Amino acid sequence: MGCVTVRGEQAVAGAVPMPAAATHAERQAVVLAGPRAKGATLYVTLEPCCHWGVTPPCTDAIIASGISRGVCALRDPDRGSMRCCARRGGRCGSSPRGRGCAAGAAP
């Protein structure tokens, strides 16, 4: 699993989950991108979480950062974070035909 923040045609931050799920990749990528996250696209392998568990919801950090669009390679049918982001004004989509984002698929 992993995540990359892209602004224009340049990757500005990338991350993978920390050991023992201490920090999800989405939160790390948003923090690493800092102000460059505003208006950027977030590409993730698995749909971000939108629930409280061991960590706070990644969707809260994504929305607060100003990410303008999210693309995931694999949807999480049990959690529905895409719907959560869309309800709060975010643009979200999944890659076509289940291809991974790293392979260059776009919605």
Score class of each variant (00 low, 15 high):
64 A>H: 08
34 G>N: 13
58 C>Q: 09
28 Q>H: 07
31 V>T: 14
66 G>R: 05
100 G>V: 02
68 S>W: 00
55 T>W: 04
64 A>G: 10
9 E>T: 08
76 D>K: 11
85 C>M: 14
88 R>A: 12
42 L>S: 10
79 R>L: 04
21 A>F: 09
67 I>N: 05
1 M>S: 13
90 G>A: 08
95 S>L: 13
88 R>N: 08
8 G>L: 11
32 L>E: 14
6 V>E: 12
12 V>E: 14
16 V>K: 10
42 L>A: 12
93 G>S: 11
92 C>G: 01
17 P>Q: 11
107 P>T: 04
107 P>S: 07
24 H>L: 12
54 V>N: 15
67 I>P: 03
85 C>N: 06
54 V>H: 15
22 A>C: 07
85 C>H: 07
78 D>R: 07
53 G>T: 10
23 T>M: 15
105 A>E: 14
3 C>N: 05
47 E>Q: 14
47 E>W: 06
103 A>R: 08
63 I>C: 01
89 G>L: 09
3 C>G: 08
102 A>N: 10
84 C>R: 03
53 G>N: 14
60 D>W: 03
90 G>K: 01
76 D>R: 13
98 G>L: 05
91 R>G: 01
30 V>A: 04
48 P>T: 02
60 D>F: 04
27 R>L: 03
59 T>F: 06
84 C>H: 11
92 C>Q: 02
63 I>T: 01
62 I>V: 14
26 E>W: 01
66 G>P: 07
41 T>Y: 05
67 I>H: 03
34 G>I: 03
41 T>D: 09
66 G>K: 05
99 R>K: 10
87 R>S: 12
97 R>I: 00
53 G>H: 12
26 E>P: 06
20 A>V: 05
96 P>Q: 09
55 T>M: 15
1 M>F: 01
103 A>W: 01
45 T>R: 11
62 I>P: 04
36 R>H: 07
29 A>R: 04
55 T>A: 15
4 V>R: 13
99 R>T: 09
51 H>S: 11
39 G>V: 04
60 D>P: 02
45 T>N: 13
68 S>T: 01
45 T>K: 11
91 R>D: 10
96 P>Y: 03
94 S>T: 08
53 G>S: 14
64 A>T: 06
70 G>N: 00
47 E>F: 04
25 A>R: 08
98 G>E: 07
33 A>E: 02
47 E>Y: 06
49 C>P: 03
54 V>F: 13
12 V>W: 10
42 L>Q: 11
19 P>N: 11
36 R>E: 09
67 I>T: 07
41 T>Q: 08
24 H>K: 12
52 W>C: 12
93 G>M: 02
33 A>N: 05
72 C>K: 06
82 M>V: 01
